[in-house]
Design a protein around this nucleic acid. Structure first.
Lengths: 187, 187
DNA sequence: ATAGAAAAGTTGAGTCGTTGCACTTTTTTA
DNA sequence: TAAAAAAGTGCAACGACTCAACTTTTCTAT
């Protein structure tokens, strides 16, 4: 890795670190991009050469959540249905977030700021097509089967549904119960 | 209704009309709020006294879609399940949109502009709690039952799922099939 | 009827996110 | 080693939106 790429990565990390620190300190809306640029000692224009938007400064470490989702579907134990495997994974990730205090602060920041909520949702929903393809392959359906796409969409959307609800765990379980067994025949 | 409120309503309509005309003509991103203000012969700050954002200029005639949703759940014929009633309603609204050419242009505008897609989704999802309450009442569940909330969320989200897909009708049907009967036991 | 409260509109200056253009620096290639 | 390509940086600017101060219009209470 050349000197150039090293410097680039350094300023990138400096920007993301400064942004996280300032956002946690003052709140997203009370920090301007100019503040972040100054804290990292670059010009505001440079910020946007590294990140496409102000929100993106916070969602830098995205990476391999998509791979985890696909693995969950493909490597589920015998006799475990796809929605059940996704339910376990969602609940696991959810309680992991509550464990780490740094992660908890991050989550509280994103959920209390509308712009970040929206952005986070969009980033999360980007995995829909990949997850749909994984489900289709796991069940032998055609790759663009709309039923698989619907399950992928709703399973991902579950975290958006649980967000802001009093009992998030219960919400996730209720949502997946609906996806697994359907609406009770009575109503 | 006094002269004052009449004038206020008049400038409001003038702004919304000018905005719709200019947006359809040039596209959302190629029209500035200044342009709209000038076309309606008011100052740009006045625009924001009437509408909270540029996007809101387009979604003015929201009104009674929520009432329609609730009526669909409450007044469904005997023996028709809630998700089935919502499915019929969704499909009906969808094909209505394709019929009216003015509505078709409106839909094409909103779907081709990311900012408008997001805004439209948010407006639509605002009906979630009201719909959840209607479902709870129709089925005798407690008002904040998470299962009812989940069905409301997913049923509304169906239009976001179908958006941008090749066969929207098929997507809506697949999504509601999942909500009605659950994921097939095999996978 | 008239004074005064309240609301609508205007204006102008300003903030903030974001982009285009010009410039410098670094890396690659001939 | 010179030239070209690429990447980084910064200034100025645009567009959405806000704030504060002020004018004009409408409503209300005496």
């Amino acid at each position: 890795m050349g000197r150039r790429e090293r410097k680039k990565a350094a300023t990138r990390r400096a920007l993301a670190d400064a942004a996280l620190r300032l956002f946690l300190d003052r709140g997203f809306d009370r920090v301007s991009v100019r503040d972040i640029a100054e804290a990292a000692d670059v010009s505001t224009t440079t910020v946007f050469k590294h990140f496409p938007s102000k929100e993106a400064l916070l969602f830098d470490q995205d990476s391999d959540r998509e791979a985890a989702l696909i693995a969950v579907v493909r490597d589920r134990p015998e006799g475990v249905s796809v929605p059940r495997a996704l339910r376990e994974h969602t609940l696991r990730v959810h309680s992991d977030g509550a464990g780490d205090p740094g992660m908890a602060r991050f989550i509280e920041l994103t959920e209390s700021t509308p712009a970040l909520r929206e952005y986070g949702r969009r980033m999360w929903m980007r995995h829909e097509t990949a997850l749909a393809a994984a489900i289709a392959e796991a069940t032998g359906a055609p790759e663009d089967d709309p039923g698989c796409a619907a399950l992928a969409h709703f399973a991902l959307e579950t975290v958006g549904f649980a967000r802001g609800r009093a009992d998030a765990r219960q919400a996730i379980e209720a949502a997946f119960a609906l996806l697994e067994h359907g609406w009770p025949a009575a109503g």
